[in-house]
Simulated assay, not measured.
Amino acid sequence: MDGLVVALVLIAVVVAAVGGWAVATDNGFARQRRLLGEAWGQIDVELRRRRDLVPRLAAMITADLPSAEEPARECERCAAWAGATVADPAEQARRENDLTAALGRLLAAAATSSRLSGAEAFARLHAELTDVEDHIAAGRRFYNAHARQLNARLESFPAGLVARLSGIRPAAYFAAEDPAVRAAPAAAFEDPQLRRGR
């Protein structure tokens, strides 16, 4: 009888330990997903800021360069498309990459205007866009670091087993696919006045 009690106690201890570990592991995944959500929230704020700059930038450039109307309209279309609700960061990244490329073409057109290059209002607006791009890049690194940690943990055993049982899926990365696209808005318009203002 004593052997049976000892065996039952040992089984209860093992079950409690495994159950406690599973709950702690699930809580760890919940914490990682919350951090991922917070990181995405910061990126989303900066993406909205960038999209809000597009109409002002397009209006300023086309006022001086009527030939830039098509790149300006393309920027506005891309900004509207990027602003549509998307649940998947990978799809959002594709849309934002399209906007980044369109902004690069618009700013390349603006670089041909000597009046814009000397306009203080344009310099301020471009500096604001560059600042937003820097914040987006920093947010992307932060978000992707959390996504990488979560995904690595999902692939590990036995934590990955708990994640599968809880229905936790890998996080999508938010990345600019083409380094030239990523640098386009900041590099398309280089002016000594802008460099002094940074």
Rank of each mutant, 00 (worst) to 15 (best):
L57Q: 09
E46I: 10
A87T: 03
R31L: 08
V132Q: 00
S117V: 05
V13N: 01
L165Y: 13
L99Q: 03
G83V: 05
L35P: 11
R141G: 09
R198V: 04
Q193V: 15
L165A: 11
D134I: 06
D191I: 01
A138M: 11
I11M: 11
L150I: 05
V23S: 01
Y143M: 01
L125D: 08
D2S: 13
G197N: 08
P89F: 03
V45G: 09
R196C: 00
N151H: 06
T130P: 13
D178T: 00
G160Y: 11
M60E: 12
T85V: 14
R195N: 10
L53E: 15
G167M: 02
V18H: 08
A87F: 13
G83Y: 04
D191R: 00
A59K: 06
I168D: 03
A39F: 06
T112G: 11
D131Y: 06
A184G: 04
A123S: 15
F29T: 02
N144F: 03
A159D: 12
E190F: 12
P179T: 03
R94S: 11
E74H: 13
V86G: 04
P158R: 12
R51C: 12
N144Q: 06
L36W: 00
F142R: 10
N144L: 05
R31N: 09
D134L: 10
E76W: 08
R182K: 12
A138Q: 14
E70R: 14
L150V: 12
A68S: 05
R153Y: 08
V9G: 04
A111L: 05
A152C: 08
F189H: 03
R196K: 14
A176E: 14
G167D: 05
G167L: 00
A184Q: 02
A159R: 14
L125G: 06
R148E: 12
A59Y: 08
R164Y: 12
L125V: 09
R141E: 15
Y143L: 04
W21G: 07
R198W: 04
T85A: 15
R105Y: 01
F157R: 10
R94G: 14
G41C: 13
G139Q: 02
A39Q: 06
A30I: 00
F122H: 05
M60T: 11
P66H: 05
A119S: 15
T25A: 09
G104E: 06
R95Y: 01
A171R: 03
A119I: 07
L10A: 10
A16W: 07
D44M: 08
A152D: 15
E69M: 08
A138G: 14
A17W: 14
A175D: 15
